[in-house]
C-alpha cells in the first residue's frame, strides 16, 4: 500500500504531506527533510527511485511511538503501520518485499514523492504520480506551485479521489476529474446556500478582510490591528 504522499518544492518547503498511517508530527517533518536532502542532490536524468544508504523510514509501534530503526539496512525498514493494537513482534523477520520504497518525480519547482511498500509496483506508482499531477492540472488549469499553496485543502480532495486509505481508488483521469468537479460543485453550492455574503470568502478565491492584504506593512502594526479587530469581533 501507499504509506505517504508528499509534495515539496525545490527548497524543501512542504506543499502537501499526507500520511496514510499515523506518524508523529516530528517524524513526519524529519522524514520529509530527509527525503528532500537525498532527492535534491540527485541531478535530472537519474532514476526515479530513491535508494540511498542511510535512508530510513520511521516505524511506528503499537503505542504510536516511533520505533528505533534497524541498523545496517540500506533500504528503508518497514513493517510500519500494520494495524494498531496487534503487536509488532514480527517486524524483524519481514523480508525486503515489505520494505518501503521511495518513488518520486520532479516537475519544475515541485517534487512529488510517494512512499510505498512492496505491494505496489514501482513503475505503476511512477504512472500514478503522473496521473495525480495531471489531475491537479485539470483541477487548477495549468497548475503551478501557488495553486497548491493557496488551495491546499483542495489538493487533499483531489488526492482523495485517487487514493483512499493508502490504496489506489481510481487511476482513470477522466473519472477522477469528474469526481473532483462534482465535489467542487457541491461545495460551492453549500457555501452559497446559507451564506450569500461568503461568496467573497476564501473558497471563491477572493481575499477577505483588508488586514491580510497589507503584507508588506510593518508586522507589529498589522498585528495590533488584527488583535483589536479580534477583540471587537468576539466582544
Amino acid at each position: 500500500m501507499i504509506q505517504a504522499v508528499l509534495i515539496f518544492n525545490n527548497h524543501g518547503k512542504a506543499r502537501l504531506s499526507k500520511f496514510y498511517t499515523p506518524l508523529p508530527a516530528q517524524s513526519q517533518s524529519a522524514l520529509l527533510s530527509q527525503i528532500f536532502s537525498f532527492v535534491s542532490d540527485r541531478p535530472a536524468g537519474l532514476c526515479n527511485f530513491l535508494d540511498a544508504p542511510g535512508l530510513h523510514f520511521p516505524r511506528v509501534g503499537a503505542d504510536g511511538k516511533v520505533k528505533p530503526r534497524r541498523k545496517g539496512k540500506g533500504r528503508m525498514g518497514a513493517g510500519y503501520g500494520q494495524g494498531y493494537g496487534q503487536g509488532y513482534e514480527g517486524d524483524d523477520d519481514e523480508d525486503d518485499e515489505d520494505e518501503s520504497r521511495i518513488i518520486y518525480r520532479h516537475y519544475a519547482t515541485l517534487y512529488f514523492v510517494f512512499v510505498v511498500d512492496g505491494a505496489e509496483s514501482e513503475l505503476g506508482i511512477l504512472d500514478l504520480i503522473q496521473v495525480f499531477v495531471e489531475s491537479l492540472d485539470r483541477t487548477f488549469e495549468n497548475v503551478c506551485e501557488l495553486d497548491l499553496i493557496f488551495h491546499f485543502d483542495e489538493v487533499h480532495l483531489v488526492l482523495a479521489e485517487i487514493i483512499q486509505g493508502g490504496l489506489v481508488l481510481e487511476t482513470n483521469l477522466a473519472e477522477i476529474a469528474s469526481c473532483v468537479r462534482q465535489t467542487r460543485a457541491l461545495r460551492q453550492a453549500s457555501i452559497n446556500q446559507n451564506n450569500p455574503i461568503s461568496l467573497m470568502s476564501n473558497f471563491s478565491g477572493g481575499g477577505r478582510g483588508g488586514g491580510g492584504g497589507s503584507a508588506g506593512d510593518n508586522v507589529r502594526n498589522v498585528a495590533n490591528r488584527w488583535l483589536s479587530g479580534l477583540g471587537v469581533g468576539s466582544g
Binding site: R208, G209, G211, G213, A215
Partner: peptide, 10 residues
C-alpha cells in the same frame, strides 16, 4: 476581521 487561510498564507 479574522484572517482567512489565504491571509495566513500571505
Amino acid at each position: 476581521w479574522e484572517r482567512s487561510l489565504q491571509d495566513l498564507i500571505r
